[in-house]
Simulated scan of single mutants.
Amino acid sequence: MDEANIGADTSRVTSVARKTRRSQADRSAATRAKVIAAARDVLCAQGYSGATMHAIRDAAGMSLGAIQHQFPTKAKLMAAVAAEFSAYRIGVYREAIRRGRSPRQSMENLIDANFEMISRPEMAAVLEIHLARRNDPDLDREVGPSTRRFDRRVRLWAYSILHAAGISEDERHLSVQLLNNAVTRGLTVEYIRNPDAAFVARAVRIWKQQMLDLIFGTGG
């Protein structure tokens, strides 16, 4: 066999190997996405205690072994649910801030983007996860790192907006951020109990105006 034929055969083998690896990776990614979606839905419908691996297995329509191949423990699966939503929120928030033509508008866009999350099933699912962390050390250990990264990212964005407006971050502004987190979680619970979008929207409009006035002043 001449060198040209050897080279051609090697290229074909390499191409097949790459396609096989891609195919396996695609299947693995599809399985992970399906399991994460099932876990999110069960969390929303049944809460954290009801989101057992067996309940998620039934919702996903696959074997427990297939799920545990991707997520060996419930804590790791819950962490994946939380991390995926954090990544989504970061992308949405970044784009919302980018659209702002002034610091106030960027902050307003960020507030709007945050409250748009309330009606998403992921928000309810992640809230269930965070509430469960206090009594589950394994869950807290798995979820904690990505949560802290997300919180730091959002705080840095808020700081950058304030800095661009010539406002120094102080205890008052930190308290406003804390209050905003509390309002977001509270309205998420209200939406779970009574998914009335108009009701939530009215509350959001009132709180958003209060926030902007507290941050930028009533004449800002």
Rank of each mutant, 00 (worst) to 15 (best):
L131D: 12
T147E: 05
H69A: 15
M117C: 13
N109Y: 02
A17F: 06
K208F: 02
I97L: 13
R104L: 06
E3F: 12
R202P: 04
R18Q: 12
I67E: 06
S49I: 05
E116P: 03
W157E: 08
Q209S: 12
V143M: 04
R104H: 04
H69Q: 15
H163N: 15
R104F: 02
A82Q: 07
A182S: 10
V143Q: 03
P121V: 01
S102I: 01
D41I: 04
A201C: 08
S160K: 11
D41W: 02
A201Q: 10
P103K: 10
E108P: 02
A158N: 09
A59Q: 12
L110M: 09
L127D: 09
H163I: 11
D151S: 12
Q209W: 05
H130D: 15
I111R: 00
E190N: 13
S160V: 00
F216L: 06
A124M: 11
E122C: 09
F115I: 05
S15K: 15
N5H: 13
V13L: 14
I129A: 06
M211N: 08
R57H: 08
T184S: 13
K74M: 07
A132T: 00
A60Q: 04
A197H: 09
E95C: 07
A96Y: 03
S146R: 05
N109D: 05
F85S: 07
V189W: 13
G47A: 06
F150T: 01
G220M: 05
V81H: 02
L131Y: 10
V42R: 03
N194A: 14
D26V: 13
L174M: 14
R172N: 14
A51N: 08
A37Y: 02
T20Y: 11
V204I: 06
R57V: 01
Q177H: 13
V81C: 02
E116C: 09
L214I: 00
